[in-house]
Structure formats: structure tokens, C-alpha cells
Amino acid sequence: MSAVADRYQDLQDLGVEVISVSVDSHFVHKMWNDHELSKMVEGGVPFAMASDQAGNIGRAYGVWDENQGVELRGRFIIDPDGVIQAMEVLTPPVGRRIDETIRQIQAYQLVRKSKGAQATPAGWKPGEPTLKPGPDLVGRVWEVWNPSMET
């Protein structure tokens, strides 16, 4: 979670609020923040660390590991209408990459701002060309995009 906390300002600049969830109590969250995370991230964790001791939120989001009684590394991007636009679930041993999460948020924000008039090709980053879905694009994506453009 320190990786997310470290990029919190970037997320705030994009108008994104963060909530983290685990089965630990909110008291343990405080201990983890005070004793470890605050040593990794200046000022400690700036967002709400929610406690889901019975796994109710985890079940509702499909990230509950029944056998181990913990939550998988589920990451959900929720838009201002409360709709899940992207989700990613990793098993515990592998951590996430926050850069990719931020890239996806930027892409979804662009799509939303264009009211769906624009879409982003594979590997798109801010500033790169977007696609304009429509009859003219069918069969002609190759003219405006190809895999070698992915950076």
C-alpha cells in the first residue's frame, strides 16, 4: 500500500480518491501506518484504510479467499457514476504496478471527457494519438495505429 500512498498526490491531481481494504482491524491499520508505512512514505498513509474483518466487502467484490480468510490483491477503478471501469485481481505473492493503474485512470478520464467519441489503443499514454471509433475506422485502424507504436 505504500506504493499507492507514495503516488497519492498524483492520484489527487487526477481527482481520484483512494480507499484501501484488508481484513485487519482499523486498530492494526493504525499500528502498521505508525510503525512501518510512515517510515516508507512521508507523513504516512493519507487515505482511508478500511477494515473488513468478516470479508463482506471482499465477497461483494469477488476477491475473498475463503481458505485463507484474506483478500486477494483486487484493484478497482470506479468512475464518478459509481461504475467499475477496470478491475484487476492478483494472488498475494505478486504486487501491483501503480503506474499502470494511473495510466488506465488517465485513459478512462479521456474517454469520459470525450463522451465516448475517443478510445485509446493498446499501450496508450497521455499525449499519444487516440482512436475515433466509427464506420470510418473499421478495417482502417492500421492506418493510424500499429503495435510498434507502443512505447
Binding site: 487526477l14 480518491e17 483512494v18 480507499i19 485487519d24 483478500e71 490483491r73 470506479i78 498475494p92
Partner: peptide, 20 residues
């Protein structure tokens, strides 16, 4: 904390296996 209090905003919701 509830999700609905952030209605109208983008939200990044992150689950993880455990503190420490």
C-alpha cells in the same frame, strides 16, 4: 468510510492480503 460518500468522484479501491 463508505463508497457512496465519494459519489461524483473517481475512486481507486485497493484490496490487499494483510497489514505488515
Amino acid at each position: 468510510v463508505s463508497l457512496s460518500e465519494f459519489a461524483g468522484k473517481w475512486v481507486l479501491l485497493c484490496f490487499y492480503p494483510g497489514d505488515f
